[in-house]
Nucleic acid binder design. Structure first.
Lengths: 342, 342
DNA sequence: ATCGTCCGGTAAATCGCTCAACAAGGCAAG
DNA sequence: CTTGCCTTGTTGAGCGATTTACCGGACGAT
C-alpha cells in the first residue's frame, strides 16, 4: 500500500508546476491542449483524484447537497420520496454535486444538525423534504445566509424558499371534476399535518361550497399522520358512518384513496356505481388497480429536478429567493363516474 | 451577513490558544473543565461549528460513509432497502458519521465513481447494497487499501468483505418446513441475478433432492430481475403450466410470493388447501395478507446495523476483513399447510 | 528597433483545522 | 534544594488543494 499521491507528485512527474496541474484538473482554459494531455496522462497513470477536503477548504465549497427526509418508520418504502430523491440525485450528479442523506429524527432536530451541516460547510445547501406544520425550528433559515429550500411543502407566513406542487390548483381540478359529475355530497379524507394538505382541504371545500351549478356538501375527516392506505381505510369507514348518502370520496393522496377503495370492496359498495373515489399523486399502482383510480397527477420526479435546480441557483447566487408552484393535471380513470340518483 | 467565524476567532475571544480550542472541540481529556467551559461558552455564543473540510484535511478522515444502492427504477420504494438504510443511518449517526448516498447507475459505474469517492477521500468507506452477479468491476476492491463492504450480497471467489443474511440457511429452513409438511412436488421461483439468490436456489434444491423421508421434485423458474410481485405472478403461471400437480410454491422473496398468491386467488386455487405458498424476508405486509404468508425472517435492519459496525471497524483498523452471515428464522403463518393427497 | 499585447505557465499566499513536540508551573519525594 | 513527574496549555509544522498576481517570450504594429 503505497503512499497516496497528491497533486504535487503529479506536478513533479509531469514536469509542470503545482498550479498548472490544478488548472488542468479544473478544466481551466488557460492551459494548452498539449500540456493538458501530458498532465492527464500522469493523472490517469496513477489513477489520481484530488483530495476533496483540500479542495473544499481552498475553494470554500463542498459540492455537496444535504437532503433531509422525514422520519417515517419505513421511510424509504414511500414511493413519494423515491421519486423526489431520484429527481434530485439525477440533477445533482449531473452538476457534480453529491448528496448527503439525513433523516429528520428527534435527535437530528434536537442537536440542530440542520444548522450544523451548513455552518460547518459540510453541505453547500439543504433540501428539506421532511417538514410538517410543527417544524417551527426551520425559522432559523429565514433571512439566513444559508441556502435552504423546502421540497413540496411550504410555510405560509415564513420567508422560506420552496418548490412545490400547487396543491390548491389540484384541489380545484379535483373539485371541478367531481362537481361536474354531479356529486353534491362528498366525503373528504384530508391530510392535516402539512400546510399543503390544509391548503388542499380548504380549497377543495371552498370550491365545492361555491359551485355555480349548486353548492356541494363536504364532510371531511383526517386520514392520519402517515397518509397511508390503512389510514384511508379507517377514514372511509368513518365517512360512511357520518354521511351515509355521500356519492363521492376525495382523498388527499392515492394511498389513502386506495385504502378507501379497499373499504368499498370489503363492504360491497361498487366503485364508481355507488361511490366515486378519487386520489391525488398518480402513483404507479393507481393505473393498475381495478377500477383504475382517477387522480390528480403530481410529477414528483420533476419536483426533485426543479428543487435541485433552484438550490443550485441559490448557491451560485443567481437567485436570492424561490417560491415555485408546479402545475398538476387531472387524470380520469374508472373510479369516478356520474353521481347516482338520490 | 458577518464573516464566518473560525477557530481562531474563538481562540482570540476566549483568551486561549488555537490548539486549546481545537482540543476542546475534540473532547480531548488534556483540557481542564474550567477551560473547556469558557471555550464552549464562546463557541455557543457564536453558534460556531468547525469547518469540516479543514478538519478533514488535517485529520485525514471525512467521517463520511458512502452508501451505494441499486439502480432500480423506483429505488426507494423497495422496502428491502429502506430497512437496511435505516439500520446503517442509525449506527453511522451514533458514531458521528454522515452518509453520502449514491445510486449505481451506468454513469456511476462508467466513471468509476466508486473508486473516486474513496480515492478522493470524500468517504472513508463504502457500503455497497447494489451488487448483482455482473458487478465484476468490484474486483478493484480486492486487496485494495480502500474500505469496502458488500451489504447482503457476496461474491464467491472474490476476496470482498461482506455482511449478509445466510441465504443457504434460509433455504434449508424453508425446504425443511415444506418437506416436513409432506410436499414432494415443489415449484421454486428463484432470483438468479445475485449470488445469494443462486445460493438459495441451489441449496433449496439440494436439500429437497436428498430428503431422508423421500426426495422431492423441484421445478424452478426465474422470477425476474426485480424480484417483484409482478414477476412472481408471471412465474407462478409458468410453474403451474410446467408442473400442474405441484403442491407448494417457494419464492425467493416475499414480494414474489405475494405475486404467486395473487395468481392463485385469480385462478381459483385455494391457499394452502390446493397449493402452499412460502416466501423469504418477512416484509411487513406478509403478516397482513390473507392467509398470512409463511416465510423466512430476514432482519434487514440488523443487516444495516451490522454492516455499519463492520465498516467502521475496518476503517479503524480493528479488523482487516469481514465475512459475516446473519442467522434467519422460520415464520409459519397460514399460507403453508400439509400437502394435499395425490 | 521599440513597444504593447497576448498566451501559457508559475510562485506563493491562503483556506481552517489537527497533533506531535515542547514548555511551564506545581508538587511530592529524595 | 534538587530532581522528576504530572498536569495543562502553547507553538508551529503540516494537511493538499485553489487562486491571484506576476513573468517571460512571441508577435504584430509603428
Amino acid at each position: 500500500m503505497m503512499k497516496r499521491k497528491t497533486i504535487k507528485d503529479i506536478a513533479k512527474e509531469s514536469g509542470f508546476s503545482l498550479s498548472t496541474v490544478s488548472l488542468v484538473l479544473n478544466n481551466h482554459p488557460r492551459i494548452s491542449q498539449a500540456t493538458r494531455d501530458r498532465v492527464l496522462a500522469v493523472v490517469k497513470k496513477y489513477n489520481f483524484y484530488p483530495n476533496s477536503a483540500a479542495r473544499g477548504l481552498a475553494s470554500k465549497s463542498s459540492k455537496t447537497l444535504s437532503v433531509v427526509v422525514p422520519n417515517l418508520t419505513r421511510v424509504f418504502s414511500d414511493i413519494y420520496l423515491g421519486e423526489i430523491i431520484s429527481g434530485i440525485y439525477e440533477r445533482a450528479t449531473s452538476q457534480g454535486y453529491k448528496i448527503l442523506l439525513d433523516i429528520a429524527t428527534s435527535q437530528f432536530i434536537k442537536t440542530q444538525e440542520y444548522s450544523k451541516l451548513l455552518a460547518s460547510r459540510r453541505a453547500d445547501g439543504m433540501l428539506f423534504i421532511a417538514s410538517d406544520i410543527h417544524a417551527d425550528y426551520l425559522s432559523v433559515f429565514e433571512d439566513s445566509p444559508y441556502k435552504f429550500l423546502l421540497v413540496n411543502h411550504l410555510f405560509p407566513g415564513k420567508k422560506l424558499n420552496y418548490v412545490s406542487v400547487d396543491y390548491a390548483a389540484s384541489a380545484r381540478l379535483a373539485a371541478e371534476h367531481l362537481l361536474g359529475l354531479g356529486h353534491r355530497k362528498i366525503g373528504l379524507i384530508a391530510g392535516t399535518n402539512t400546510f399543503t394538505g390544509l391548503q388542499f382541504r380548504d380549497e377543495f371545500i371552498r370550491v365545492s361550497k361555491s359551485w355555480p351549478a349548486g353548492a356541494a356538501q363536504v364532510t371531511w375527516v383526517d386520514g392520519g399522520e402517515e397518509w397511508s392506505q390503512r389510514g384511508g381505510y379507517a377514514a372511509a369507514a368513518k365517512l360512511m358512518a357520518q354521511m351515509p348518502d355521500l356519492t363521492a370520496i376525495m382523498a388527499a393522496n392515492d394511498r389513502m384513496a386506495l385504502g378507501a377503495m379497499r373499504w368499498m370492496a370489503d363492504n360491497r359498495r361498487e366503485v364508481p356505481e355507488n361511490v366515486s373515489v378519487m386520489g391525488v399523486d398518480d402513483i404507479q399502482i393507481s393505473a393498475y388497480v381495478n377500477p383504475g383510480l382517477s387522480t390528480i397527477r403530481h410529477d414528483l420526479y420533476q419536483v426533485g429536478i426543479e428543487s435541485c435546480n433552484r438550490i443550485l441557483q441559490l448557491i451560485k447566487g443567481e437567485i436570492t429567493e424561490c417560491s415555485d408552484l408546479l402545475p398538476t393535471s387531472l387524470v380520469v380513470r374508472g373510479s369516478t363516474g356520474r353521481a347516482r340518483a338520490k
